[in-house]
Design a protein around this nucleic acid. Structure first.
Lengths: 192, 192
DNA sequence: TCCATAAGGTGAGCCAGGTTCAGGTTATAG
DNA sequence: CTATAACCTGAACCTGGCTCACCTTATGGA
């Protein structure tokens, strides 16, 4: 899909419309909206959807990449404002909040974090690096235990975010995240 | 499905054959084996499969119920042999091991633990009680932090077990479980 | 032993949802 | 203004879960 020359203007418009329709659907409840419905909402035929995105999954990926980008910008900022362990704690909660805004985001985060699907390779790498950044800052200062990779933590978070949102889900996720965070501090040289 | 009178002999045989075929498929790799394939392996028609199980999901549930039963017998035994926190630690690892034996079990455990699907209500309740038993024993002795419900822990484990098994998955799951366990000890009156 | 009959079995076919492709349409460079 | 590559369309296809009208057979009673 990444064409070397720019899209024709109508094509660009359709692509945007499709992404907007998909975003609308995925982020507000209906995480498994049908491709036909998405195409309809975007005002194009299914064929057009498939011209822009190889599969339904590819469309999903594109929708969430922006969310991930945004999320992955956070660690740098958090580290500038807080101690490393506090920054890590806040980032974990940020992920949970993002997953909590809609079933869609939760499912997407799970897909990104808990699978090896090559579709999400970029997003996963980005997330791993974000977590590594936070973990390393914490271990350097001695408030976070050593030997935990961003990848490993990513998996754990993927699991948590992948919990199907239901009654009381958010509070449980926050609670679990707190326990996990304490586990990350456990045994660290200077753990609070 | 739960008939008051016993199944006819041929029906019982077919039911067993279906469960055996499904178990074979689910526990050894192919967690999303098609119903037609399962029926074929069992030597019956699809209609027969659906006579015995309302949906594909119901068949899955039945296959895994036995695993769950076995798993849920463990806490009692572990508590008889180890200190409460050690019993809990071993139980968590037991779950991971079970999830590790096959993709199928992992997916099933996730379905049981991370969703609210009424299909798995029984299994979930059973698991929650098993975890409650361990957590309460630990808090009573002061080695496990207070205020964590079996349900909450179940969710966290569901997430971990739901990670799609891939290279290095088992080690990561064990690692995460260890961190989670330390989180459960963190701040407990008599934590090691 | 044999029959009546209800329990059980069968598989063609339906339906939903993702995907393809032959043919028509249109933006845009020259 | 035109040639044409890029784009769009939607009927049709495919897969996989599930249904149902009709056929087969285990089983209990005479």
């Amino acid at each position: 899909m990444p064409s070397s020359r720019p899209l024709r203007s109508d094509a660009r418009g359709n692509r945007e419309a499709l992404l907007a329709a998909a975003r609308e659907a995925f982020l507000t409840g209906d995480a498994d909206a049908h491709v036909k419905e998405i195409a309809r909402r975007a005002g194009v035929a299914i064929g057009t959807l498939y011209r822009h995105f190889d599969t339904r999954e590819a469309l999903v990926e594109e929708v969430y990449r922006q969310e991930v980008d945004e999320l992955c910008a956070a660690p740098g900022e958090l580290l500038g404002r807080h101690a490393p362990d506090e920054a890590l704690r806040r980032f974990l909660l940020l992920l949970v909040e993002h997953a909590a805004v809609g079933k869609g985001m939760a499912v997407a985060l799970e897909s990104i974090m808990a699978t090896d699907s090559p579709v999400f390779d970029d997003a996963r790498t980005q997330m791993e690096q974000a977590l590594d950044q936070l973990l390393e800052a914490g271990t350097a200062v001695g408030t976070i235990r050593d030997g935990v990779s961003g990848r490993t933590l990513l998996r754990a978070l993927g699991g948590i975010c992948g919990m199907r949102p239901t009654e009381g889900w958010r509070d449980e996720a926050v609670h679990i995240t707190a326990i996990l965070f304490d586990g990350l501090r456990f045994g660290a040289p200077d753990a609070g």
